[in-house]
Every structure is written in C-alpha cells, then in structure tokens.
C-alpha cells in the first residue's frame, strides 16, 4: 500500500506533442497532435497506479514516456533524483534495469524465432552486470516456475503456448532483472475471460512477493479497480481525476469519470430496465485540435461558458463532501455515486 514516504517515481507536467508536417522537400510544421498534455502523478513503492481512459487519450504514450521510449516534449520523470526523460546512453540503460514493461499483445511482443529461454534471458545480454552467477538457464527456469509455467519448457517457441501462457512469458521477462517498477500496458485485454483472472492473480502475487510497483494501464474499469490502489482517469491527454480506488469508483466527481463508470455494462440483469445511464453523445475530439478550456466540454452535460474559456485545473475542489478529498479537473465537480445506483 501507499506510504507517506518518498515516491519512487514522480511525473511532473509531462507533455508529448507529435508534430504534423506538410510538404515533401521543405517540411514545415503545421500543427501537433497533443497526445499527452501536462500529466503529473506519483507512484509509491509497492503500489499499483491504474491509468484508465478511452483509446486515444494518451495512456500508452504516457507508458512510453515513462521508459523514455518516446522523448518527452516537456516535463520530468523523476526516478531516484534523476530525470529519466533527459537521460540517454549508458545512464538511461542503467535506469531501465529497474523499470520494465509488459505489453498488451502476447502474440507480437515475443519474437517467434527465439526460444522461451532466449526471450527471458535476453535482458541479461543487454545488462551483463545483472547476469546471475549461477547461470542464466537456472534463473530462467526459476522465473518460469514463478509465473506458473513448466520449467522444462524452456526450449519451446512462443507459438507452442496459448495467449495466457505467452503473457506469463512476457511477465517472466519483465521480472528477469528484478525491477522495482513494472509498467503494464493493457496486459490482459487480449486474453479470454477465464484466463484474465489467472494472470491478474499472478500479478498480484508477484507484487506482494517482490514489493513491485505497477503502473497498470487498461480500459477495463472493473479490472483496474480490482488491482489498483490509486487510479488516474485520462481524457484527451490530461488527467481529469485522480484518487484512491474508493474515491474514484465510489465517489467520482468529474463528469467524464461518471459517464465512463456509467457506461460499463453490469454483469447482473436485475433491474436493467430502470438503470439510469449517462450516455455521452459524440466521439472524442481530435487531439490535434482539442477544444478550448475544458477538453471534455463538447460532450459534457454540465458545460457552461466558463468551461470554454478557462481550463479547469486538476486540484482539490470545494463543494465536495464526505471522503471525496481527491483532485478533479472540473469547474463543477460534484460527487455522484454511479456504480451503486444500479
């Protein structure tokens, strides 16, 4: 759980703009896709931070920025006093030893021409200083056992495994260097329902065993609630609401969070005809040309003139009551219980 101690990862005002260019010979920039536009959060040791939002809201770009797989346009990613977003070369490599990633698609994130042993031991080829003394093979077998696979299968190829098993291989690779932070980008979205639960349970078990911190990116709100201690809701490159899992799910104050929670189909048919559902109209606007002021205002039922003129900051809002003491980026933030109202 989160402690008051120093955060292990601190993200300040992270911005990523992808330039839009025109012309063939003389390219000139005509605009930018504002994929991530000022995102700040903290991650504590042993904690899971869930990052939710619809496709195109910038959650995967945030994941890449945390690893410096994409260079940030602006902002900082502080890890142990170093700004990851400014590092390069050897210094960056050293930091990445402690931050690993698990990807969404277990079919494309494993090289089909490498055996499981090669895949899981590859981190040791990149970081020879981390190579275990007893030899990589033994460690690979330990890792396989740890993630619930048969250690005798180290010479098999990815195609000989099912989706859920491949995701376990991906997790084993992520664990190879004993990292402190694992960034999971939609780790279970490609899996069948009955297999999802296995992988989620495994990730929770590993977190308890090694004190890992997770940044857990997903669009499935139920899964995020299950695994996260704190949750950040993103919309069009910005965090609109952030708080503990209870604050976000039981006491949401931002209209977008409320709409998102309301749209999740409830796996219980009782009273389905009387459900009061918030159905948003329209689609997410283009991040190349986001609305002025509050970015959600074009789809928001509370929107007024001030929303078009003034951008609401992510801060503690007055007018909230009860335990809802978390930050929300809405001028008219108001608590509304969605998930228990069904």
């Amino acid at each position: 759980m989160a402690t008051a101690a120093e955060p292990i990862l601190q993200v300040n005002g992270l911005v990523k703009h992808f330039p839009l260019t025109q012309g063939i010979l003389f390219q000139k920039q005509i605009g930018a896709v504002k994929a991530v536009d000022g995102v700040s959060f903290e991650l504590h040791k042993g904690e899971t931070l869930g990052l939710v939002g619809e496709s195109g809201c910038g959650k995967s770009t945030v994941a890449k920025l945390l690893m410096n797989l994409e260079r940030a346009t602006k902002g900082q990613v502080m890890y142990k006093g170093q700004d990851i977003s400014k590092l390069s070369g050897g210094a960056l490599k050293a930091v990445r030893r402690n931050i690993q990633m698990v990807f969404q698609d277990p079919y494309t994130s494993l090289n089909p021409r490498m055996t499981v042993a090669d895949i899981i031991a590859e981190p040791y080829a990149i970081h020879p200083e981390a190579k275990p003394k007893q030899g990589a093979k033994k460690r690979v077998q330990e890792l396989l056992e740890l993630v619930g696979l048969n250690p005798e299968h180290i010479n098999r190829y990815p195609h000989q495994f099912s989706g859920g098993q491949r995701q376990r291989i991906g997790i084993a690779r992520g664990l190879a260097l004993n990292p402190e932070i694992i960034i999971c980008d939609e780790p279970v979205s490609a899996l069948d329902v009955s297999v999802q639960a296995q992988v989620i349970n495994l990730m929770e078990k590993l977190q308890g065993e090694f004190g890992l911190s997770y940044v857990f990116i997903a669009h499935d709100l139920s899964i995020v609630r299950h695994i996260s201690d704190r949750v950040a809701v993103m919309y069009l490159g910005k965090i609109v609401e952030i708080g503990t899992e209870t604050e976000i799910y039981d006491h949401p104050t931002h209209p977008y969070t409320q709409a998102l929670l309301s749209a999740v189909p409830v796996p219980d048919p009782t009273g389905r005809d009387n459900r009061d559902r918030i159905i948003l109209s329209g689609d997410v606007p283009s991040p190349a040309n986001p609305p002025s002021g509050c970015r959600f205002r074009t789809r928001c039922w509370k929107a007024q003139e001030v929303c078009a003129q003034e951008e609401p900051l992510l801060q503690l809002r007055t007018g909230m009551h009860g335990p809802a003491l978390h930050a929300s980026a809405c001028h008219f933030a108001e608590e509304k219980d969605i998930v228990h109202a069904h």
């Binding site: 099912s162 859920g164 329902v193 296995q198 349970n201 139920s222 609630r225």
Partner: peptide, 20 residues
C-alpha cells in the same frame, strides 16, 4: 466468479484453472 466487480473491490479473483 472470475470477473472483477465495478461496485466493490473484491479479494482474490476466482480463476478457472487450466486452458480451453
């Protein structure tokens, strides 16, 4: 039993063992 709930934070998820 294996789907997490939106309205409450449960304990361990029940997982069907094995594979299809």
């Amino acid at each position: 039993a294996s789907i997490p709930r939106l309205d409450l934070k449960g304990q361990d998820l029940y997982a069907i063992k094995g594979l299809p």
